[in-house]
Write a protein that binds this DNA or RNA. Structure first.
Lengths: 200, 200
DNA sequence: GAATGTTTCCATCAAATGATGGAAAACTAT
DNA sequence: ATAGTTTTCCATCATTTGATGGAAACATTC
């Protein structure tokens, strides 16, 4: 039951944000009484925290998968595949992108339950893209580049419904267009700028 | 009074989002009674709508300024200046970026007052970057590129507080790093890919 | 100054929201 | 089958939130 609640909470928090989500919405979606929700998860903020940690763990695991897949390939190929894989993955779980973006800037009205530490994944991202050989040594400027790359993907995933309408595309076209756009933007920067360190 | 309320509402909605913002928060910040707020602006959703339209108008005007400034320059120079100007502008008005991002994916719990039409500014963006000569002719793939560029800026602006901590930087370093990262990412894509159409 | 219109506030409402106590139901172990 | 434990629900609470009516205060016009 606890896991079912977490699963539903994840989706709803991802769509409506912390304040836009009521505990009753979650309970109703799961098909339980609201006190059952409190029985299993305690306060709303606790549940939200669990959700955020959950998505970060998912993201970390996926980055590991990406890395396995691109290991040993040429830089450009590595980036192409990384972008494809991350994009596909996130499109299937838009709440990850939404919750990530909410986390960057959405404030809450009370002592923030949201200021908990989240695992550092910048190094994982860089490593999974094959841009560093040692995850522990990432410089701030490289971190910013990683942020820009990941956020570019998150944005297209999160904004899908909005942008589909704006661009007058269907979903398939959109996903295809997203991938092309991301590669258009990202690959020249890293490949042509000679920004990638030599692999050990 | 009406304008004062709008100004304050803009900031608070930008930080807390629609559901995270209460009408009392706004009234208190302005220093008025809550019914005064309702007297001038009607329902909460109406005020939010006015705020969103307000920021879009601001953004449009700034894009016009950018265009004036870069007119006639070489592509690379145009993009550098456009990125600098837009970044500076948005850092002074983070609510624009926040509200824009909220709009892409944050759902509301009732018949959405948020689904109103907003002026189309993709053409303005492309034009202001000097990437098309006719704003009316933007193809979907070009629009996606514009989106990616603008969203990259919005993300760094919106995420400032979060990223400052993550990256262990002070504000000045951060802004500088943002500009460098954006140029690092954006310029190669457009300049080296030969993606920019010839200027008429 | 009076009449009229506008703005502001106080007091309040209905509904919503986060949350809980206690009892019943379900489950588990012997 | 019984006892003990866990889970679920109903009923409810305190507080918050969006919103309003009416009166007072203020501003404008003649």
């Amino acid at each position: 039951m606890k896991g079912r609640i977490l699963e539903v909470a994840r989706r709803i928090f991802g769509q409506y944000g912390f304040h836009g989500t009521t505990t009753r919405m979650i309970a109703q979606e799961v098909g339980i009484d609201i006190s059952t929700l409190y029985y299993h998860w305690g306060e709303k903020g606790d549940l939200y925290e669990a959700v955020v940690l959950d998505i970060y763990e998912d993201l970390r695991e996926q980055l590991v998968e990406v890395e396995k897949r691109i290991h040993g390939l040429a830089l450009e190929k590595r980036m192409e595949i990384a972008v494809e894989m991350m994009t596909d993955y996130l499109f299937e779980r838009p709440e990850i992108s939404n919750l990530t973006l909410f986390r960057y800037f959405a404030k809450t009205r009370h002592a923030s339950p949201l200021d908990f530490r989240v695992p550092e994944i910048m190094g994982n991202i860089a490593h999974s893209m094959g841009l560093v050989s040692d995850k522990k040594q990432l410089q701030p400027d490289a971190k910013m580049k990683m942020l820009a790359v990941m956020n570019a993907i998150h944005n297209f995933v999160s904004g899908q419904n909005f942008f589909l309408t704006m661009l007058d595309m269907d979903e398939k076209e959109y996903v295809k267009g997203v991938k092309e756009t991301l590669k258009f933007l990202i690959i020249p920067a890293f490949v042509h700028n000679g920004a990638a360190p030599k692999r050990a």
